[in-house]
Simulated assay, not measured.
Amino acid sequence: MSDSQQVTNPSIDQIEADIAATRAHLTATVDELVTRSQPKEIIRRQSESARVAFAGATRTSDGAIRVERLAGVLGAVAALLITIGLVRRQRS
Rank of each mutant, 00 (worst) to 15 (best):
D31L: 11
D18F: 06
F54Q: 10
P10V: 01
R88K: 14
T60L: 12
R91H: 05
Q6S: 10
S2M: 08
R44S: 14
V87S: 00
T60E: 15
E41Q: 14
I82A: 07
E41K: 11
V34W: 01
Q46P: 02
T60R: 14
S49V: 07
D62F: 07
R89H: 01
S2G: 15
Q14P: 00
E41V: 07
A53T: 10
H25R: 07
D3P: 02
R51C: 10
Q38T: 04
R69V: 15
R91E: 07
A53I: 13
G85E: 08
Q5C: 00
D31N: 13
V34R: 05
I43Q: 03
V77Q: 03
I15C: 05
V73L: 15
G75Q: 14
R59N: 13
L86A: 09
L74G: 02
T8N: 09
T29C: 04
F54Y: 08
V52T: 14
E32Y: 06
R45H: 07
R89W: 03
A76I: 06
G63N: 08
A55H: 07
A76E: 10
Q6P: 01
D62W: 05
D3R: 11
E16D: 11
L70R: 14
A78K: 08
Q5L: 12
A78N: 10
T29I: 07
A76L: 12
K40S: 14
M1Y: 00
G85D: 03
G75A: 13
R69H: 02
A64R: 15
T27R: 05
S11R: 04
Q5N: 12
R69N: 11
L26K: 01
Q6I: 13
V87L: 12
I12Q: 10
L81V: 08
S4Y: 00
F54R: 15
A50R: 11
R51Q: 14
A28S: 12
L70D: 08
E32N: 06
V52Y: 01
A71K: 11
R91F: 03
T83R: 09
I84K: 05
Q38A: 09
S47T: 14
I19P: 00
I82L: 06
R36D: 05
L33G: 01
V73C: 02
V7P: 01
G72T: 10
I84W: 00
T58S: 08
D18N: 09
V67F: 04
Q14V: 06
A21S: 11
T60G: 15
N9A: 01
T35N: 12
T60K: 15
G85N: 08
Q46T: 12
R66T: 06
Q38M: 10
T83H: 04
R45F: 03
P10K: 06
F54I: 15
P39F: 04
Q46H: 06
R23W: 04
V52F: 00
S49K: 14
S11Q: 04
F54M: 12
I43P: 00
A28M: 01
D31V: 05
R91T: 13
A78Y: 08
